[in-house]
């Protein structure tokens, strides 16, 4: 029995080494900017870079827009499927899983061909329209996670009774969705939202191919040209991802039955 426990600790130790050494390595590397002494110089430079501010702001706004559109798309659909159209559930579930099946680079390749400036719907024609297209591409990326989180949340509550109660009090569909259903799946929606934020904030492929000034392409640019700043950026990005996930865990714990359900 003790041999088994020793073996388990050994496995955990190997895993912990594999996961923590790169984090430690990144942090150590990010402090090496000045020869011979550890300093936060690389962070100072990165945080003072106007391109950092611009791209980070851009990606943050895009992430928030993605979250709003994602919620508006997923919550009513999942609600309606649960309430009225359960026979369509397999179809909708299959579609929400498609972004995991079709690589992101393929999806954006298709966008570039269909929505180019000479097509009927030239979404890549202007910068603003391309922003919208990039936002839609992020909605597809986040959809598998968003849908699963919201669907799990809806299954945990009695959608039918809540709807009927609201209807008998004379509520409209908009009122039901916004003031009855949404508050009840708040935790699930927030989990999906934080996960979406974590995915979108450093996304590289789609932003780069659509040629938008997002944080991911900026990271790549710095990585190709600088020595120590990339590590500082990696530490910052990891801190953001970590706080998003930590928030999901905290939310999940507050409401039993609704887990983060990311994967």
């Amino acid at each position: 029995m003790t041999r088994r426990i020793l073996g388990s600790w050994l496995v955990i130790l190997v895993g912990a080494l594999y996961f923590f050494v790169p984090l430690l390595g990144t942090f150590e590397f990010s402090l090496r900017y000045r020869r011979g002494v550890y300093s936060f110089e690389a962070y100072r430079i990165v945080l003072g870079d106007p391109r950092f501010h611009a791209t980070f702001l851009y990606s943050t706004v895009l992430a928030l827009a993605t979250i709003v559109v994602g919620i508006l798309l997923v919550v009513p659909t999942a609600y309606w499927i649960q309430l009225r159209l359960p026979r369509l559930r397999p179809v909708v579930e299959f579609i929400t899983l498609l972004p995991l099946v079709i690589p992101a680079i393929v999806i954006v390749f298709g966008y570039l061909r269909i929505y180019n400036s000479s097509s009927i719907l030239p979404l890549t024609g202007s910068a603003r329209a391309t922003d919208v297209l990039l936002m839609f591409s992020y909605v597809t990326l986040a959809m598998p996670y968003m849908y699963r989180a919201v669907d799990a949340g809806l299954r945990a509550i009695d959608v039918r009774t809540l709807t009927e109660a609201a209807q008998s009090l004379g509520a409209s569909w908009a009122t039901i969705l916004l003031r009855v259903i949404l508050p009840n799946v708040q935790v699930a929606v927030l989990s999906g939202a934080f996960l979406t934020f974590a995915i979108v904030i450093g996304e590289f492929t789609m932003a780069s191919l659509l040629d938008r000034p997002a944080f991911g392409p900026y990271l790549q640019l710095i990585g190709a040209n600088r020595a120590y700043e990339p590590s500082a950026l990696a530490v910052i990005t990891f801190a953001i991802t970590w706080s998003c996930m930590a928030l999901i865990q905290v939310l999940g714990r507050r409401t039993p039955g609704v887990t983060a359900g990311a994967h």
Binding site: F19, V21, P22, L23, L24, G25, T26, E28, F29, S30, L195, A198, I199, G202, E203, F204, G216, L219, Q220, G223, P230, S231, L233, A234, T237, F238, T241, W242, M245, A246, I248, Q249, A260, A262, H263
Partner: peptide, 27 residues
């Protein structure tokens, strides 16, 4: 919990982390 975080730590920053660890001058 850690797996939830690490499975989303991919892309460009992950490459930086491994360069800083196992690159030619990595830790």
């Amino acid at each position: 919990t850690f797996s939830g975080v690490a499975s989303n730590f991919a892309g460009v920053p992950l490459a930086f982390a491994f360069l800083a660890t196992l690159g030619r001058t990595g830790l």
